[in-house]
Design a protein around this nucleic acid. Structure first.
Length: 305
DNA sequence: TATTCGTGGTA
DNA sequence: TTACCAAGAAT
């Protein structure tokens, strides 16, 4: 949960998850649908799918016990270099060097590394390994992360309060605030789509499940045109409607920003009925809380309802 | 190595 | 409002 997500956001999800699935075995037995539902709003939904798969792997291949080495952990779904090192050090007392965004920043400043990320990741990791003590490597890593989160801030580092100020190369050179440098990010294009909110004669709404892989994988959505980088002309849209009916365009747009593109959705509403196809369901608006809906779809539904 | 993955807080 | 970025991983 903490991968690329701030602690404050994670905490309520964490408690809810451990209340609902207190053990690896129970999580492994859960339906993926339930797991995605409990994850809704947290983002990066591949993490939920990987966590579920990871629990099943631990139960099936490791007798329900997590591997206690960095390499063993690294082989599990959703566990990469950071998480493997963090769990090895914090949970199992191993000497390992987890390097997150905070530690990258602290180390880059401590050693005045001026080459840009992400190219310099490997060097920062080697420098971090050189700082890691043989004992209490987990506490050491958490101390560096907390230093990064409270003192060695991304903008405006509080060097006067920093316990490492004396040994900090970038502070000596007066360039701490400018580190770490990053390769300029690609511009964020805008994509456009038309979303269809179809209601049957009982007031139920037609929803469909997105493909398992890719953006918002496995989450529910209202039917829509593809999301493309050119706007849609009215005559192009009809073939993507879930039904031929008297569609009404709603005023205004739903705007949502993802990691690598901005999305503008116009919303059309209509009435009509037909059997739900594969991966589709008719759902009463009052029961939308039972489904795994990404934030962008919550915005669409709030707009339409 | 570069891209593709969400969402919310903050300056 | 915009830009940045957060206990990164998979492809």
């Amino acid at each position: 949960m903490l991968q690329q997500t701030v602690v404050k956001t994670v905490i309520p999800y964490f408690h809810h998850f451990l209340g609902r699935w207190p053990s690896v075995a129970e999580l492994a037995r859960a339906d993926l649908d339930e797991v995605l539902h409990a994850w809704q709003g947290l983002g990066y939904y591949a993490r939920a799918r990987n966590l579920h798969k990871c629990a099943q792997t631990v139960v099936r291949d490791h007798d329900g016990q997590f591997p206690d080495t960095e390499d063993g952990l690294r082989a599990l779904p959703g566990i990469g270099p950071y998480t493997a090192a963090a769990v090895a050090a914090m949970a199992f007392g191993r000497k390992a060097s987890p390097v997150d965004g905070n530690i990258e920043r602290v180390v880059a400043r401590l050693f005045a590394v001026t080459d840009p990320l992400p190219g310099v990741k490997g060097e920062l990791r080697r420098l971090a390994e050189g700082l890691t003590p043989a004992r209490r490597a987990g506490d050491h890593a958490q101390a560096l992360m907390d230093l990064g989160a409270t003192i060695c801030l991304p903008r405006g580092p509080l060097c006067s309060r920093c316990p490492l100020q004396k040994g900090c190369d970038s502070h000596a050179q007066g360039i701490a605030a400018s580190l770490p440098r990053r390769r300029p990010k690609a511009e964020r294009p805008t994509r456009y789509g038309v979303a269809f909110c179809l209601f049957d004669d009982r007031g139920r709404l037609l929803l469909r499940r997105r493909p398992e892989k890719g953006l918002l994988g496995g989450m529910m959505e209202v039917p829509s045109t593809p999301w493309r980088e050119t706007d849609w002309q009215p005559h192009e849209v009809t073939e993507f409607a879930p039904l031929s009916t008297n569609w009404q365009g709603l005023p205004g747009l739903v705007v949502h920003t993802f990691t690598h593109f901005r999305l503008e959705l116009s919303v059309r509403t209509g009435t009509g009925g037909r059997p739900a196809g594969e991966a589709e369901i008719w759902q009463a608006p009052a029961d939308l809380g039972d489904l795994a809906l990404p934030t962008v779809m919550k915005k669409v539904l709030r707009h339409a309802l």
